[in-house]
Amino acid sequence: MSNAILITAAAALVISSPILALLSQGRPQAGDIALVIAAPWGGNAAQIAAQAGLQEIAPARAPLGILVALDNAQSVDRLYSNGAWLVIDGKKVLELCSI
């Protein structure tokens, strides 16, 4: 029984490690690429970015997020005030997804 718990814990850690790596990054800065993640039941990420005055930079969208270019230091604050759940480093996402 204890082996099953250990294997389950190890699998959960391996599966969640890319997400933990993304969340542990610092706040994106002006001029950076950011991934904007929105609630699945609320306004979508494209609407949030448009309301914040930011442009999408990727040709494809994920179900809950989009990639945007941050114009200035207040861009992240505007995204959060318009309903973004998370704004994380988009360069790391591009590396993980090999885009």
Rank of each mutant, 00 (worst) to 15 (best):
Q25D: 14
Q74T: 12
A39W: 09
I99Q: 12
D71S: 09
V14L: 14
P28T: 09
A49G: 12
W41S: 15
L67A: 00
Y80V: 01
D89E: 09
D71T: 03
A84N: 07
Q47E: 03
E95W: 03
I48S: 08
N72W: 00
A10Y: 01
Q55I: 04
A62Y: 12
L13M: 15
L94Y: 02
V87I: 09
I99V: 09
P28Y: 10
K92G: 13
G43D: 07
W41D: 15
A73D: 15
Q47D: 08
Q47R: 03
N72C: 03
I57W: 09
S24E: 14
S24D: 14
I99W: 13
V36S: 00
S16V: 05
W41K: 15
M1Y: 06
Q74V: 11
N3Y: 08
G31P: 05
P59W: 11
G90V: 05
L22I: 07
V76M: 05
A62H: 04
V14G: 11
D77F: 00
I33M: 13
R78H: 12
I88Y: 03
S17K: 00
D32L: 06
A21P: 01
A9F: 09
A46Q: 14
A30T: 05
L22M: 11
Q51W: 11
A46Y: 08
R27Y: 05
G53M: 14
S17P: 01
G26S: 08
A10Q: 05
I19E: 00
S24R: 14
I88D: 06
V36T: 00
A30R: 06
A38H: 04
P40M: 05
L20A: 08
S2L: 11
V87G: 13
A58P: 00
K91T: 10
L6N: 14
A60D: 12
L94I: 05
S75N: 09
L64T: 05
L6I: 10
P63K: 12
L20M: 11
A46M: 08
I66A: 01
I66M: 06
S2P: 00
I33R: 12
A60K: 06
D77L: 03
N44L: 09
L22Q: 11
L94G: 02
A45T: 02
L96Y: 07
A39Y: 08
L96K: 04
E95L: 06
